Amino acid sequence: MRVASLPAGEIEYHETGVGPPVVLLHGLLMDHTVWDQVLPLLPDGFRYLRPVLPLGAHRRAMRPDADLTLPALTALVADLLDALDLTDVTFVHADWGGGLFLTAQGRDQRVARQAVLPCEAFDNFPPGLPGKMAALAARTPGGARFAARQFRIRWLRRLPILLGQMARDPIPDETIRGWTEPLLRDDGVLRDLRAYCRTHFDRLTLIRQTEALASFTGEVLVLWSPDNKVMPPAHGHRLAELMPRARYAEIPGARVLSMLDEPEAVALELTAFLRGSSGPTDLP
């Protein structure tokens, strides 16, 4: 893992390949490994970067005085692009929707294209039942670590209030241990997660900031999972209609984490998008 030094602290990121940069994001209580099954299926000729955002599964705690609310985390993503001097970036959003707000913050100059998998958007912050339960647990003394321990019990994490609505197929124990270990052992990581979950989510502000994407002129792939219960299917269509150069596609049968449920289908769509074709192509 490489490390980028930002005003808020140090961010780890995994990097592979050479070419135009593709930045793949992840969600709350997850890390870059959510893309492990898709990454080997993506085409050569691109530089793939997977940052580990301070969303509870990161291994390096941020500075104690760092602002980690939603707007600040959006700015942190922009700071990362600046620190690495990335240009002509393809952003791939998944689960966490804060990266969508770069346009609203006026910091999307380095972003050329975006792929939007099921993620928070409009007023869906925190998203659905699992998002609301995670936010409640993080605000409750001892709640975040209690929830992390429940994640490690296979049958419990399949419940709708944990990961049952996030992934169709069971997530391997090894992956879950990697996601939960930093939170269970590091008080700084716990502090960071609680700082983010204390964000005041104002419905009208969230909608307005999402709708700022109407001014994003780059190509966009909205790759939604219509069968999930956490990120409303209507939001996928709405996002595609909002951006002038967006194409809408679906991953049937998958839930929010389509890269885990249907990695080959996700890779097909992303490959076509990265190569500039109008639809899915054969895997490389």
Rank of each mutant, 00 (worst) to 15 (best):
R2L: 06
R2Q: 13
V3I: 14
V3R: 10
A4G: 07
L6G: 05
P7G: 08
P7T: 10
I11P: 01
Y13R: 08
E15Y: 07
V18N: 13
V18Y: 05
G19H: 08
G19D: 11
P21F: 06
L24S: 11
L25D: 01
H26M: 11
M30K: 07
H32M: 06
T33I: 10
V34T: 14
D36V: 12
Q37R: 12
Q37L: 08
V38Q: 09
P40R: 15
L41W: 02
L41T: 03
L41R: 08
G45F: 07
F46Q: 03
L49Q: 04
R50L: 15
P51F: 00
P51E: 00
L55Y: 08
G56R: 08
G56M: 08
A57F: 03
H58C: 13
H58V: 14
R59F: 04
R59Y: 05
P71I: 02
A72W: 06
A72P: 07
A72D: 07
A75Y: 01
L81C: 12
D85N: 12
L86C: 04
T87R: 15
T90M: 01
H93D: 07
H93M: 15
H93I: 14
A94G: 03
A94F: 04
G98K: 03
F101K: 13
L102A: 13
L102N: 05
L102M: 13
T103H: 04
A112N: 07
C119K: 04
C119W: 05
